[in-house]
Design a protein around this nucleic acid. Structure first.
Length: 231
DNA sequence: AACTTATCCAACCGCCGCTAC
DNA sequence: AGTAGCGGCGGTTGGATAAGT
């Protein structure tokens, strides 16, 4: 393996330590558990192997599908992707991607995969250069980095009222940075500029930069994290 | 059976952002 | 403002094992 394999005894000590003192304070875990391992090794071993409810075995078709879609949007942000797959760890997802999907799915193939979803074309129409905003086709995508989100074109995030009961008083916005957009083929779009799909969201493109506000900006991390609130 | 190659995946490494001082 | 310590993350490594020759 990439390092020294953990023994059953070490696993037992670590588990016992976490059960007694809880997660966190990883810098103290090696000492508390009596392990000759660094804090990072202890944390990794717990997160990837010892933590309760970890799902092992082959990925289901649904899980693979979700990984592909989330990767389209989020890129190599494995922890976020894993967060949407109950029981799966970021390391599992990353390994699975590197071993299976990255080889099978070059960008063209990903496109083809998503073309099964008839909504895909809506994405390009909605986000394409004909729309208002700072999308620059000549430069290959959005012109502003996330830190300049105020000037960047945005997606307005509007949770579906019937799903969550009430909408936020002031809908937060999403931005898509150039790299993410260029490498992605968001599969979540529906009619009339709404974005529907497996994320369970309803997103709407807002091309009028003037309507943007400096507050309530969410990036994808926050969005994905907050899905749990809406779910 | 022996050897080579490919694949899988647990573990490590280096970097980053956050927080406290 | 600068720095140290920490948790967390993604990329990479390398041993085990399966598959192929």
């Amino acid at each position: 393996m990439g390092g020294v394999a953990w023994t059953e005894e070490e696993d037992h000590l670590l588990k016992k330590c976490i059960e007694q003192y809880g997660e966190g304070k990883w810098h103290r875990v090696p000492q508390l558990a009596g392990l000759n391992r660094c804090r990072k090794s202890c944390r990794l071993r717990w997160l990837n192997y010892l933590r309760p409810n970890i799902k092992r075995g082959v990925f289901t078709e649904d899980e693979v599908d979700l990984i592909i879609k989330l990767h389209n949007v989020l890129g190599n942000r494995w922890s976020l992707i894993a967060g949407r797959l109950p029981g799966r760890t970021a390391n599992d997802v990353k390994n699975y991607w590197n071993c299976h999907l990255s080889k099978k799915l070059d960008p063209q193939q990903v496109d083809n995969h998503e073309d099964n979803d008839s909504n895909t074309k809506e994405v390009l129409e909605i986000l394409g250069p004909s729309q208002p905003g700072d999308f620059a086709a000549s430069s290959g995508g959005w012109t502003q980095p996330p830190t300049a989100a105020l000037e960047a074109p945005s997606l307005v995030y509007s949770p579906m009222p019937e799903e969550i009961g009430t909408s936020p008083a002031s809908p937060p916005m999403l931005y898509v940075d150039q790299d993410e957009f260029n490498s992605s083929n968001p599969p979540f779009f529906g009619e009339d500029g709404h974005v529907l799909g497996d994320l369970g969201l309803d997103l709407q493109f807002d091309g009028s930069a003037g309507s943007m506000q400096s507050s309530n900006k969410w990036d994808w991390d926050d969005l994905i994290s907050d899905l749990d609130l809406w779910g």
